[in-house]
Design a protein around this nucleic acid. Structure first.
Lengths: 253, 253
DNA sequence: CGGGACTCTTGATCCGGATCAAGGCACGGG
DNA sequence: CCCGTGCCTTGATCCGGATCAAGAGTCCCG
């Protein structure tokens, strides 16, 4: 993998979105772009980080990236597509834990038990950067910047559970969810106001601890209030400030 | 700190509970006992880990261990007492994030933003081991066992958010909460069936996303069903299996 | 001693969202 | 083409737990 680069110069700092057609460039979408910046572009150490990445995919919608109980060997950065993680409890009910967009990392919660505690399911055709974890943590032991980056990724993930916290109304949850999605798209260079909801209403409902009917109703209400435009899974946020205000108690800042 | 040990031999593997009167022994309650085991008792590297610990306290009930916005410099392992962490949202409402018992670690979620995102408040007189985080991560860069341990602590914390997940009934939440507390006490060598609820009904309610009245009612019902014995904050679990069964959908295994 | 603040418990009422039910639409296969 | 199967939307009803309210016990402080 990336054999061209192992002998030559590393590419320039990548732009936000990787060109799928050119596997030889450093993956710009992957969450380790910031680790690379920390190490410093052009530094020889970057090559080591670069070389332990393996591009995997495509996974079609519905396919498992990993499953509950699989031995933990690697973490995955989403390059394209969307993933949901979910657990199935003893009663057989699914519990959606999160959605992961391009640039985000899945698998971090498997470090400790060394087996994946949840399923990761592609919601649409998706590609990933696979990072062997043993290799990664060996590298982290030699490169403080990589160690720091891993600590930060883990710590950040700890803070992101807040969307489902508290006894909040369906409106607050939904508004916060849409605002959060928009921000996460925006931070990677996508539009933060116009995007595709790649998950079903049922998945959203499950994630937000609501009934699918309630999700549908709230979206309809938001539309009739001029906050959003929805057509199936295509979403446009017409009034970001209004939406943010409704969900303010669940959002940072 | 620990100057006696810096010159002499390290103490034997400590017993589960630190003797508060003897600050010179390695703190057995603190969560890094397992890191010490990983390094290997008696190894000279252990001294380095040992020496970056600072014992702090006592904090009386109601005192802040750290506050939202404080610069992140250290993590804390609870040696004795109990701590709650909570955020205050824009509306001024408190949100309890978790309770931490002896042996558990607080502050990990501050690694990324480098400022504490929440308050940590002692619920009763408490003592802590304070680990300077810069020193700790420098050590981790040289000692893979310490790095691994930190990764595991973080990853474990990621998995522990499950008690508040899902649309579960008040009974399920409460049963799971009590069972979880019992397990966490048991794992540190305390009784897992007889212990003190060091937090108020209001704190439990806030944490479980219930009203305080509901918590009170559920506890009364559990008592009348012979599942538990409660007298104020003193709790005894009379039927661990029954309780576990009620909360099964929220509990691991 | 008494009074105020706080916590806990129990009762009565009310409401948000779950649940049940029905219908529309898009898609794929025979 | 029709039919089956998901997914989504909207309406009607119901219930668990929030909220309001009252009272008891405890502790601290004057």
């Amino acid at each position: 993998m990336h054999s061209e680069n192992q002998a030559g110069r590393l590419p320039e700092p990548p732009s936000p979105i990787a060109d799928d057609g050119d596997e030889t460039h450093f993956c710009r979408t992957c969450a380790f772009a910031s680790a690379c910046q920390a190490v410093g572009y052009g530094k020889p150490e970057l090559r080591e980080l670069h070389c332990l990445v393996e591009h995997v995919g495509p996974f079609r919608g519905g396919e498992y990236v990993f499953r509950t109980g699989n031995p933990f060997r690697a973490i995955f950065a989403v390059r394209s597509g969307t993933v949901k993680t979910s657990m199935v409890d003893k009663e057989g009910r699914e519990q959606v834990l999160g959605f992961y967009l391009p640039g985000e990392v899945i698998g971090l919660n498997a470090i400790y038990p060394e087996h994946f505690p949840c399923d990761a399911i592609a919601l649409e055709t998706s590609h990933f950067c696979r990072f062997s974890f043993p290799a990664m943590s060996a590298l982290a032991a030699r490169m403080p910047a990589v160690q720091t980056h891993l600590f930060r990724l883990l710590s950040k993930e700890l803070g992101s559970a807040s969307l489902l916290a508290g006894d909040h109304s369906a409106d607050e949850r939904m508004a916060a969810f849409l605002t959060d999605l928009g921000q996460r798209y925006a931070v990677r260079g996508f539009s933060g106001t116009q995007f595709q909801l790649s998950m079903s209403r049922g998945d959203i409902a499950n994630y937000l601890r609501l009934a699918a009917e309630t999700v549908s109703r709230v979206l309809s209400r938001f539309r009739s209030q001029g906050l959003i435009q929805v057509e199936g899974r295509q979403l446009e946020i017409l009034d970001p400030a209004g939406l943010r205000h409704i969900g303010r108690s669940l959002l940072p800042d």
